[in-house]
Design a protein around this nucleic acid. Structure first.
Lengths: 160, 160
DNA sequence: CCGTTATGCTTAGTTACTCAAAGTAAATTG
DNA sequence: CAATTTACTTTGAGTAACTAAGCATAACGG
């Protein structure tokens, strides 16, 4: 087993962990990972438009509509027409959603943060540099990710 | 922006890269990532049973059946009854599938391997150690991943 | 040898995520 | 005001995954 294999395996484990995390979320909260992402995005901003969600998640508007439909059906989100621009619909959280978010303390991310915080200063610096190097090796550049370790959530290159 | 944020973002980029890779596969080969994984697994062993695939992919047998259905429909795989155990069905690749595999040279993994190979010896060692450390921080232990950097493909703990 | 149990796979039904295209309503612009 | 753009929803369709139920074959125990 050479180093290339070892590093590929480690990468697989990292990716796999995020997938398993999706299942944890579902079990713990009854909400699917995609829906959970939507809740996180709404929570970040208080209220958002469907457009903003679709942009953040890099997903079509139709998809967002159906995700939000389910959240509304389950009493986790509300739609409210904007009074400024009546084409827009503000999506906001219910108290139930806040409970869901509070009770699903992002186990994967917290696990990581906890262990990271426990590291010595020099090791933290080393890990950050290492991860950034690897990310640069893999990714297609230009990604501006937010510090949320949840499947799929990513911020596209800022333009507009 | 502190180190925790930086490292979470780097992790997100790593995970995101594997997701985007799935889309690349689809575009380049006309085969979905899940189907592609199945092809890879068959290719590794020459022929496999549905059970083996479901075990490797950590997915139910029903799911494997439907994935294989699609591969057969598209002329990429064949089913053949085992003569030893006639309950078993061996799944094998067609020549068309070999073309697909050959023409989809696993861009993400290759990209990584190329850059990894270009590193100095000391950096390779450093990266492996770093990735393994991070993987250990994230994952729920006991995973025995194979060195294939494709979404979802993982080998469960060897027992049997 | 025969019935029971276990195994391997398929079928059917459900839920979810995703997209593209078409539709509706509201704002903006010329 | 008409035309265009923007914001969102609807519709129709594909993929993926699960569970439960069914069928055929194998293996075992008397």
């Amino acid at each position: 087993m050479d180093r290339i294999d070892s590093s590929l395996i480690a990468l697989r484990r990292i990716v796999r962990a995020t997938e398993l995390f999706g299942r944890e979320i579902r079990q713990a909260t009854g909400v699917t990972p995609a829906q959970f992402r939507v809740l996180q995005i709404i929570a970040e901003q208080g209220f958002v438009t469907a457009k903003a969600i679709s942009w953040r998640m890099q997903v079509s508007q139709g998809t967002v509509t159906s995700l939000v439909d389910k959240l509304v059906r389950d009493g986790l989100a509300l739609r409210e027409k904007s009074s400024q621009d009546r084409r827009q619909i503000h999506i906001l959280l219910t108290d139930a959603a806040r409970v869901v978010l509070a009770e699903a303390p992002d186990p994967l991310q917290q696990r990581f943060v906890r262990k990271f915080a426990a590291m010595d200063d020099w090791e933290q610096a080393l890990r950050v540099a290492g991860l950034e190097r690897v990310a640069a090796m893999l990714d297609a550049e230009g990604l501006d990710a937010s510090p949320v370790l949840a499947t799929g959530d990513i911020r596209p290159p800022t333009e507009t």
